[in-house]
Amino acid sequence: MSHDRTPDENRNGHPVPRDADPQARARALQSYLIEKELLTTDQIDEVMSLYEDEIGPRNGARVVARAWTDADYRERLLEDGSVAIDEAFGYTGPEGTDIVVVENTDDVHNVVVCTLCSCYPWPVLGLPPTWYKSPPYRSKIVRSPRRTLREEFGVNIDDDVEIRVRDTSAEVRYMVLPRRPVGTDGMSESDLAALVTRDSMIGVDRPGDEHVEEL
């Protein structure tokens, strides 16, 4: 074999060397756990189909639409996001504890980042997009949020609107409650939900500045 190394030379205390082929590592991990009868393929497939079909930004959109149409719900949501989301919709699971919902207003724009890694409220938004996890976004949005929103996302935030960068941490997951677009009076909750984008719940989009006809 071409991988003649003393056991700890490359491992540095890790059970598997970091430079090993990741495809082999992923296959080895899964097959190891299955052969030891610690996990089953059915359990793993179930997770995939959950994240494929049920857990994604449509969930968050429903929460936002409810908050737009029900003032009491909006209040509960801003008070304790995780509880209000779980109670009304049953969205919970990993990355779902301690979801804090922050509200965009005429004067304040919130944008979410995780500078440590990639913390993100999975139950309401699904898995984070690639750019959210990338080092450039994680540093730029903190250093110069207004410019990053303009240059990377094409979102112009007026100078008199305060931008709050919410750094998600190991303890807290943020979700933005965007403003309701103008011209949506009388729309049903489900029609409203269809207007809510994933990006607006991360805060890299600000549809509340637009009239519904422009969206």
Partner: peptide, 16 residues
């Protein structure tokens, strides 16, 4: 679900 995997092994690692 907006899953952004570039290769099957990434999904395998995630799901495991």
């Amino acid at each position: 679900g907006d899953l952004s995997f570039d290769a099957p092994w990434q999904a395998r690692a995630f799901a495991t």
